[in-house]
Amino acid sequence: MNVTINGVAHELPSGATVAEAVKTLTETRNGVAVAVNGEVVSRGAWDSTALADADAVEVLTAVQGG
């Protein structure tokens, strides 16, 4: 299936989880937050939340600003 991770199209196996999507970018979990289709998925639910085709995944962290 095809999902968008931080604006870039990715091909992931069917049933891939949020945790697997995060892993395409980083091994770190600390300081990272995820939204799928505009809804926050808490860190504790990454392993159990399956993605669906065409989902938009945003993986954010803190950067210099303000």
Partner: peptide
């Protein structure tokens, strides 16, 4: 101290955090 939230950049070295 304030920080902003942005898309994670795998190539970024070091973290403000």
């Amino acid at each position: 101290t304030t920080v902003a939230m942005r898309r994670l950049d795998p190539s970024a070295r070091g973290s403000v955090l």
